[in-house]
């Protein structure tokens, strides 16, 4: 597992897995979309609109997951002085921002017909909006400092400070009354979703993960090359 913390080994490993991952992500995306649009049934309440879920939920999960990865890498990079962590942070931040944006946009597209509004300021929606701005600030930090060694550390510290937002996003629907419904799939209880709708959701999630990995590999490799040329 050394390729997760060492840029040379990462390069070697990435070269091996890049093509399979790329193919897999395209195939899974196509299969997932077919499932989502044609094979999955309508919801008993929401009818056909429920299909937005197959984009909304994976992107929401991935936006959180990306941040979690960045947090872990920040700790690794700062505490154990592994510069590869900084490289990952720089490379992955825009991906997280895009996923968050997709989540917000698909969510409001879903909210308009179902709730009757594009946007409300309840705890979940607000905290996700904050997450998006945090991603933006990380990107800003990464482009506005002149010294690479400074900005990567500052960004890592900012990521750690901003990670306070993660549990708020995750548990906002459980702690407080919100317009947003509680989590459908949680570890403690049986998921309250029918298997026929669970399948496309899972396929789409895996597809999103692979898309994320594909872009991340590309971005990390460019980042490594840019740093070698400073």
């Amino acid at each position: 597992m050394r390729f997760l913390i060492n840029s040379k080994r990462f390069n070697v490993f990435a070269d091996i897995i890049f093509k399979p991952v790329l193919v897999l992500s395209i195939v899974l995306l196509i299969v997932g979309l077919i499932f989502a649009f044609f094979l999955s049934p309508d919801d008993y309440q929401q009818g056909s609109t429920v299909r937005i879920m197959y984009v909304h939920v994976p992107s929401a999960w991935l936006s959180l997951m990306t941040y979690l990865i960045m947090t872990v890498y920040s700790i690794i990079a700062l505490a154990f002085r592994m510069p590869f962590g900084f490289i990952v942070n720089t490379a992955v931040a825009p991906i997280g921002a895009i996923f968050t944006l997709v989540c917000i946009i698909s969510g409001s597209l879903w909210g308009k017909p179902m709730w009757g509004t594009w946007w409300v300021w309840d705890a979940r929606l607000t905290s996700v909006a904050v997450l998006f701005i945090i991603y933006l600030i990380i990107i800003f930090i990464n482009i506005s400092f002149e010294n690479v060694r400074v900005r990567e550390k500052i960004a890592a510290i900012f990521i750690l400070v901003g990670s306070i937002n993660l549990p708020i996003i995750k548990f906002s629907v459980d702690w407080w009354n919100t317009l947003h419904q509680p989590a459908t799939i949680s570890k403690l209880s049986k998921p309250s979703i029918d298997p026929s709708m669970m399948t496309p959701l899972i396929i789409m999630t895996i597809a999103f993960i692979f898309i994320g990995i594909t872009i991340a590999i590309l971005r990390i490799k460019t980042e490594i090359i840019t740093r070698e040329n400073i």
Partner: peptide
């Protein structure tokens, strides 16, 4: 304190400090 210490070496984009304060002050 957090945001201005982050911004000490930031010569280009000083407004970033205010943005950091404002996002956490929500």
């Amino acid at each position: 304190s957090i945001s201005s210490s982050m911004n000490l070496l930031n010569k280009r984009n000083y407004l970033l400090g205010s943005v950091i304060v404002m996002i956490f002050s929500i």
